[in-house]
Amino acid sequence: MNVFRFAGDMTHLFSVLVLLLKIYATKSCSGISLKTQELYALVFLTRYLDLLTDFISLYNTVMKLVFISSSLAIVWCMRAHPVVRRTYDKDQDTFRHYTLVAGSLVLALLFHDRFTIREVCWAFSIYLEAVAILPQLVLLQRSRNVDNLTGQYVFFLGAYRAFYILNWIYRYFTEQHFSRWIPWIAGLVQTGLYADFFYYYYLSWKNNVKLQLPA
């Protein structure tokens, strides 16, 4: 565990906490894409299959449980909570996220470390996570005013994988045979998708104006 990896995990955890705070405090999920949340739940469920078989560390197990439970709780909230579900922008959140699932599955069947259920599911979760933010970014472009918590949520979500890339660079130079080209490429694509968001987030912060993504 190096400092970049820890910073990445804490940033990721913080993004989830910000989203939970937004939904709990405002009892609203306006501006949040349910499709992105469903994709993240699928990412965690397919990535952490080893939760019950491999024990790596208490930290690892606890964080996996936190990510799985929080993503499922958010999906439940947006689908079934009597108050929150009514604030979901159903007609704005129209990204066809099934294509992202299908594409990631095809990629995982083609490119994986070993052709086993667990490795194909793991590769699937890596590819899916890289594109899971797309419905959320499209929704942000459509919803004119992005509230602060939503903007912070997306910002920390994008920042966490950037820390992971630093972690992979660090591990590459400090450990032998540490070559993970699958998360490398997917991580670069994932962080790249946030590039324009980061730019407009920086502008809104610099000019102290509301965050607005151009349509």
């Binding site: 990896r5 995990d9 990721h12 990535r47 080893d50 491999d54 790596i56 690892n60 964080m63 996996k64 990510f67 470390d113 793991w122 992971y164 972690n167 450990e175 045979h177 540490f178 993970r180 998360p183």
Partner: peptide
Amino acid sequence: FSKGEVHDEL
């Protein structure tokens, strides 16, 4: 079964 094989990251 080197450590690198087990996915030790989140």
